[in-house]
Design a binder for these strands. Structure first.
Lengths: 337, 337
DNA sequence: TTGTAGGCGTTATCAA
DNA sequence: TTGATAACGCCTACAA
């Protein structure tokens, strides 16, 4: 491996000049810069990342903390962040906190403090105050995506608004027997996504003067199978709804499959609206409120880069929740008279 | 941040002893080791990863090269590898080569040579000979998962065997009008997965003395929508098959949805067998040949660790393709007489 | 614009 | 078993 000295010697300059020529930091004449870069290319020289970060304190590496890497929302956020970070020369190190519980604290304790990354993105990671304290101690920027972390700036959608948009759509179409296919309000629901959506569902109905009938809310774990099972209950119920609001697109897909199996036609006999903007929405013809997690990841990365990179100042107003939009497809229509 | 000197001073020993006490490398008396670790804990000392790797040449970081992070197979492999690596104290840095094409060569050129990782896992990454050469130059272990890379040891399943197992199942049930829902044999099919499966399908039929009828092979891109579309063609064809072999579980799901829509009952009127072992297989009742990508990831990590870690010698015979197994569910049965 | 030289925080060799 | 100390390879004031 060629080192900076080799290049310096071959180019007839000092190592300082090589460093400056390669990194772009500091003043170098155009001529020498080109020469150095040429020599470097010939020698196949690439600066050692470890040496560079030891000397500079920067690592060009961002850590992403996530509880899952195999769920749609998380994957999309990771992909969006990665794309943006990579575009600016940053590596992404993935800390999967979901796998083995015992690993979790070691990961946070050891690695996160080992100064391997310049900053963190935490996707829906519930951190306790001790953990947050430690993260602040090491003084590295951190930004949350999804679930809010106390004392940490977080970008996310407004779960209340999301449900309102979906419900408004159904109400405007003329539905009144609307059921909820919700997320379970258990201890996994650390960030109250499931409960916020349910509460908003109820309050919107109430405001519209529509009572929430017993049995008109069924719950699952945001997956297709759970949506299917819960929808079956909803649709075989005595007072079958004319519309369903699903807390996730995947649950909505499950509901669509369940409805087809029961011979219930969508949208004439049953309207379904989801929340997410899942790629398969198109395929299933699902009307949904798109929360664009890919963009959430990109935005998180952009804000982070803004803090880390010296010359950037594309400040983003982080107090505004990210926009969501209703995507109308063929799963919703006016209820049959 | 406490440094090694702080700990040395506080514990009344040399930095060398601190280093040895913390890393476990080198001989230290039990007593001093405990004392040092206690002092280190009190001071909240954690060794700097960059400094350590500059000095030792090891980074405790593994790079995963992948073209996608949002596709089931890849996510599973990553998850399996990550889990295993993390268990041994390794970080995982993700190099997503799929996103922006222009990024690809820079990633390979720059980062991979910057010595930030100790080894690589390449999941279905097509590398040209120049790229392989460079990877060998830096002399870091590399292992492929899925697609074979010239000169690089690769673990993968035997695509021929997979198809044979699935076909044997259908043939044993008594099917003879078997159609293929294949992968498109285009330039994306670098590793000939699609074409190998198709060829094996044809040869198995031929050996069974069954002609491959025109129109009995339709192709897609391994996704649910493409499986749906291709299956529609297959099932509205004049000579409708009694069984379908799908090149991926997702395509099989698409086929199941298509069949239901056409009012074709599974498995009495149509048997469907997939390839993958997708989580949703259970939900759809899909008979499939499980290729366990999670385990593929774990195995890749284990082999890599075996090379990197000093004291391990759990040698794995890498010349054996990984095992696959037929998972029988409710999507296959004898054809109706 | 360029060069000199002192870190950056560990690890590992060699003596003791 | 422990301690001194020379790398590790680069960055960055500071000086020229």
């Amino acid at each position: 491996m060629a080192s900076i000295d080799d290049v310096a010697r071959a180019a007839g300059v000092s190592t300082a000049t090589v460093s400056r020529s390669m990194s772009g930091r500091g003043a170098v004449s155009e001529a020498t810069r080109l020469k150095v870069q040429k020599v470097a290319a010939e020698l196949g020289y690439v600066a050692s990342a470890t040496a560079a970060s030891l000397a500079s304190g920067r690592s060009s590496n961002i850590g992403i903390l996530t509880p899952y890497i195999d769920r749609w929302f998380f994957t999309e956020v990771i992909r969006g962040a990665q794309e943006e970070l990579s575009r600016h020369g940053y590596d992404v190190t993935l800390y999967n906190l979901g796998g083995v519980p015992a690993q979790r604290s070691r990961m946070l304790d050891d690695f996160i403090h080992r100064g391997r990354v310049d900053a963190f993105i935490a996707i829906d990671v519930p951190l306790d105050s001790a953990e947050i304290g430690r993260l602040h101690d090491i003084n590295r920027p951190i930004i949350g995506v999804g679930g809010a972390i106390a004392g940490v700036r977080t970008i996310s959608i407004d779960d209340t608004e999301v449900v309102r948009i979906a419900m408004r759509h159904l109400l405007e179409l003329g539905h009144s027997r609307i059921a909820l296919l919700g997320g379970r309000d258990d201890d996994v629901d650390v960030f109250k996504v499931a409960s916020t959506r349910r509460k908003t569902f109820e309050s919107v109905l109430r405001q519209a003067g529509i009572p929430v009938l017993p049995g008109s809310m069924q719950f699952g774990d945001f997956t297709i199978p759970s949506g299917y099972t819960a929808a079956k209950k909803l649709l075989t119920h005595a007072n079958r709804p004319t519309a369903i609001l699903a807390a996730s697109d995947e649950m909505a897909f499950g509901a669509i499959i369940a409805a087809r199996e029961l011979g219930i036609t969508i949208p004439s006999e049953l309207s379904i609206v989801g929340i997410d903007g899942h790629d398969l929405g198109e395929f299933f013809g699902l009307t949904t409120v798109d929360q664009n997690p890919l963009q959430q990841g990109r935005t998180a990365a952009t804000i982070l880069l803004d803090e880390i990179l010296p010359h950037r100042t594309e400040t983003i107003d982080i107090n505004t929740a990210l926009p969501v939009r209703l995507v109308k497809r063929s799963s919703t229509a006016k209820p049959r008279a």
